[in-house]
Design a protein around this nucleic acid. Structure first.
Lengths: 137, 137
DNA sequence: ATCTTATACTACAACCATGTAGTATTTATC
DNA sequence: GATAAATACTACATGGTTGTAGTATAAGAT
């Protein structure tokens, strides 16, 4: 599906935080658990805060916690907060106008798959993501 | 779905050529019909030739024609000839290992959609793409 | 007030996809 | 053989994503 690395990180981080949704997480804990770049994660967390998904607590014993309840955060909210989600919903061949009346070569074949992709991202919330023992973050 | 521009171009060009599969097409004709960059298309055509999908005819009255019959060219062949298709089939969160036993956060939700995407690209050939009067290339 | 430990900001580097420019090569026609 | 019309090749430019480095700022603990 080719989500950007940043979007993948965002989903992984928030999934991890959603396991205990009221805990305050520091970047150093997230970095050690998810094994990703420290500096890059910090920037990402700032962006997720600005997007209103989480809130930051500065200073000693600071960190990040959810600003909205995980059951109100949809995958599209996460992805949309770090990149333009439209690139995943527009015409698969890149046309700005593509419809049943004036379709691209793949329009009819692709229509059904596209709606499944969109439905999933629009309907799945953070709290609906299964947390099972063997799950990786 | 976020195919690369190059992959989108490739599908559009070959869809256009498939309408009259035995005709020799010059880059200038394709450029004028599909309205894309002349130089970039030329490089793309060279790559599609090297990939074995089309063959080039140099010199005067030259151009490009199909090397394989359009009904033997699957979408995955086209995309795979210009970029690494695995990025569309791997784990949606980017893990190199992701399975039912050791899944990522989205694994179970995504599984079904992923198989629909893969099925489509693996099963649809150029000749199966509908050519209707209002279709755009 | 000062120290410590967090996040916030800004600048820069590396890489890849995309696109442009110019030259070289090939081959049918004359 | 010379010309014309096509593809092939090489180098460079641009922009976005990803990642790194260093400094600034905030706020609790003492």
């Amino acid at each position: 599906m080719n989500l950007s690395n940043t979007a993948q990180y965002a989903i992984r981080v928030l999934s991890y935080m959603a396991v205990n949704e009221s805990v305050i997480y520091t970047t150093s804990e997230i970095v050690s658990k998810l094994n990703l770049s420290d500096k890059y994660l910090k920037r990402l967390m700032t962006n997720l805060s600005k997007a209103g998904l989480i809130s930051s607590i500065q200073g000693r014993y600071g960190g990040y916690k959810f600003q909205k309840s995980p059951d109100t955060i949809f995958l599209i909210d996460i992805i949309g907060s770090v990149e333009n989600f439209e690139k995943y919903e527009g015409c698969v061949l890149g046309f700005s106008m593509c419809s049943d009346e004036n379709p691209c070569a793949l329009h009819h074949k692709w229509e059904h798959v596209q709606s499944e992709i969109s439905d999933l991202f629009h309907s799945v919330t953070l709290s609906q993501i299964q947390t099972e023992p063997n799950m990786k973050f």
